[in-house]
Simulated scan of single mutants.
Amino acid sequence: MRSRSERKSKPKKRKWLKITLITLSVIFLLVAGYLFMLYKSLTDTVANMHEDPRGGQISEKRDKEIEFKKKDPFSVLLLGVDQRAGDRGRSDTIIVMTVNPKKESIEMVSIPRDTRTEIVGRGTEDKINHAYAFGGVEMSMNTVENFLDIPIDYFVQVNMEGFKEIVDAVGGVTVNNDLNFSYDGHTFPKGKITLNGEEALAFSRMRKGDSRGDFGRQIRQRQIIEAVIKEGASLETLVNYGPIFEALSENVKTNLTFDQMVAIQANYRNAAKSINQHTINGTGKRINGIYYYIVPEDEKLALQNMLKEHLEIN
Rank of each mutant, 00 (worst) to 15 (best):
Gly162Leu: 04
Ser110Leu: 00
Arg7Tyr: 12
Gln304Ile: 07
Ile225Lys: 03
Thr279Ser: 14
Thr187Asn: 07
Asn281Phe: 13
Asn314Tyr: 14
Gly89Pro: 01
Ile219Asp: 14
Thr98Leu: 07
Pro53Glu: 04
Gln265Trp: 13
Lys253Glu: 08
Asn267Thr: 10
Glu199Lys: 00
Asn142Gln: 13
Gly135Asn: 00
Glu65Val: 15
Pro73Leu: 04
Leu238Arg: 11
Leu195Glu: 05
Thr117Asn: 01
Asp44Ile: 13
Glu6Pro: 10
Asp44Gln: 14
Leu42Phe: 15
Val239Gln: 12
Glu125Phe: 09
Ile94Asn: 02
Arg88Cys: 09
Val137Tyr: 01
Phe163Ile: 12
Met141Leu: 06
Thr93Phe: 03
Ile111Phe: 03
Glu104Pro: 06
Lys71Gln: 07
Phe258Ala: 10
Lys8Gly: 12
Leu35Met: 06
Lys127Ser: 03
Val109Lys: 04
Asp168Leu: 06
Val175Pro: 01
Glu6Ile: 15
Ile119Glu: 05
Val170Leu: 09
Gly232Asn: 01
Ser75Asn: 01
Asp114Lys: 05
Gln57Ile: 10
Thr98Ile: 05
Lys285Asn: 10
Asp63Lys: 15
Glu145Gln: 04
Arg2Met: 13
Ile280Pro: 01
Glu107Thr: 12
Ser3Ile: 11
Leu42Pro: 14
Ile294Ser: 01
Ile294Met: 06
Leu195Asp: 06
Thr45Ala: 12
Tyr132Asn: 06
Val99Ala: 01
Arg90Ser: 04
Val156Leu: 15
Arg90Phe: 07
Leu17Pro: 04
Asp210Met: 03
Glu104Gly: 10
Lys308Arg: 11
Asp52Gln: 03
Arg286Cys: 09
Thr279Trp: 11
Gly162Phe: 09
Phe28Asp: 11
Ser110Gly: 00
Ser140Phe: 07
Val175Trp: 00
Gly209Ala: 03
Phe74Gln: 05
Phe28Trp: 08
Arg222Leu: 01
Lys40Met: 12
Ser140Pro: 03
Arg286Tyr: 11
Asp82Met: 02
Ala272Asp: 12
Asp114Ala: 07
His186Ala: 11
Asn255Asp: 12
Ala272Trp: 11
Thr124Lys: 11
Lys308Pro: 08
Pro73Asp: 00
Glu226Trp: 09
Arg122Asn: 13
Gly33Val: 06
Arg286Thr: 14
Arg207Glu: 00
Asp63Cys: 12
Asp92Glu: 06
Phe68Ala: 04
Gly197His: 05
Arg4Glu: 15
Leu238Cys: 11
Leu148Ala: 01
Ile58Trp: 01
Arg116Leu: 09
Lys40Ser: 14
Arg207Cys: 01
